[in-house]
Design a protein around this nucleic acid. Structure first.
Lengths: 211, 211
DNA sequence: CTCAATATAGATCAGACGGTCTAAATCCAA
DNA sequence: TTGGATTTAGACCGTCTGATCTATATTGAG
């Protein structure tokens, strides 16, 4: 039989904002069954700290300098396949949610989540469950699976957003202008965009490309 | 002569993320000369709470639902012209910084600010000084004053970003298509953009328009 | 292995876009 | 009130864009 004072859930917080880490630390401190054992300000640090402390649960932001959250999740789970990671971030679009879950995140929470929901999720994931916040699920449901852009379409979209004409894109990707046009056509169709500008904005909103 | 135990600096935190407010609360709690007297999750709440508590210093995020930070600053300073407000936000572009300062903010800090710098700024602003974080100053210095878009140019840029053609923009703004073209020309020139798509992205990056 | 999806490439064409030039009405500040 | 900025509007023109159509090579999944 387990002791009444079981081992606390060991947690690492990864976020580039000191204030957010402070907030997580304060929240965890009020919970008897949890302990904050590490903090990291970017993905690189997160991987190193994970190695040295091996927390039960990692709270991970996605937008960070040095190494973004998705890359950090991939790196950590490559070394520690059983790592349990909860993404805790502001709205970044359905494409980012998909990437994070594919990379091996167990849960996805938005930062405007209430304290109780965050604590519940930590305990649920520690117990082996997978969860998605209602908002995240909604974002995913909004877009059918088949409207995902192919990698080469994404590369074209990125160059469109940077202000390149089809001809310039063709040169940079070493393909013909006609091919670029084909991809643009597909992009507009998949994203339901009126024109290339609209497509770039939708790509941003959905997290397919970054600013 | 003042007592050794002077009145603490009364602070309000405005941010739509509970975790950030928790972080600010935790930080303030460690300082003997400060006290958190109010919290608000959006601009609307911020105005109401300001009325009832009249804090010495308000820490204000910019991106919030209901009422954004700039509107809240304007509303608060209309009623209380001596209100001292520190903007505490993630990078949102030079245009937003200008708006916030014009609205009457005394200081502008990025959320990746270290705790010490935030505390220093609170004390400095409470003592009547105005400060800008180095990053904010840099963002401002990057763009000359004369490359600011006029209000009508901004309205065109917003419609460009929404995926409208010049003809559609003309109808929506009740002006001729030639006029729209004139504005587009000015926008491209002022923002140093290759095309309308590039202009929309730059507008976003600089906080001239929102997603 | 086979089917479907993807990447590639081309022709054609109307319409949209962006550059250049001009110019009048309005409005605000010096 | 006078000059400067803004807003409005137009002509002209070459280029780019997006729609439609076709068609082959490659690749990955079943």
């Amino acid at each position: 039989m387990m002791s009444a004072e079981a081992l606390p859930i060991r947690i690492m917080a990864v976020d580039d904002h000191p204030i957010v880490r402070q907030g997580i630390a304060g929240l965890i401190a009020t919970q008897a069954d949890m302990a904050l054992v590490a903090e990291a300000a970017n993905g690189q640090e997160a991987v190193e700290k994970f190695r040295s402390t091996q927390p039960d649960i990692t709270l991970m932001d996605l937008r960070m300098a040095e190494m973004n959250g998705v890359s950090a999740i991939i790196a950590i789970r490559k070394e520690f396949p059983s790592a349990r990671i909860i993404v805790l971030t502001t709205y970044v679009g359905d494409a980012q949610i998909v990437s994070a879950l594919k990379a091996g995140a167990q849960a996805y929470l938005l930062k405007n989540t209430l304290h109780k929901e965050l604590l519940d999720t930590i305990r649920a994931v520690h117990a082996g469950k997978k969860t998605l916040s209602p908002e995240a699920s909604f974002q995913l449901a909004e877009h059918a699976v088949d409207d995902a852009l192919t990698p080469s379409e994404v590369s074209v979209l990125r160059l469109i957003a940077a202000g390149n004409a089809n001809k310039q894109i063709a040169v940079q990707l070493a393909i013909s202008e006609e091919t670029v046009k084909s991809r643009v056509k597909n992009i507009l169709s998949k994203l339901c965009a009126n024109d290339r500008t609209h497509a770039a904005m939708i790509g941003l909103k959905r997290g397919i490309i970054e600013l």
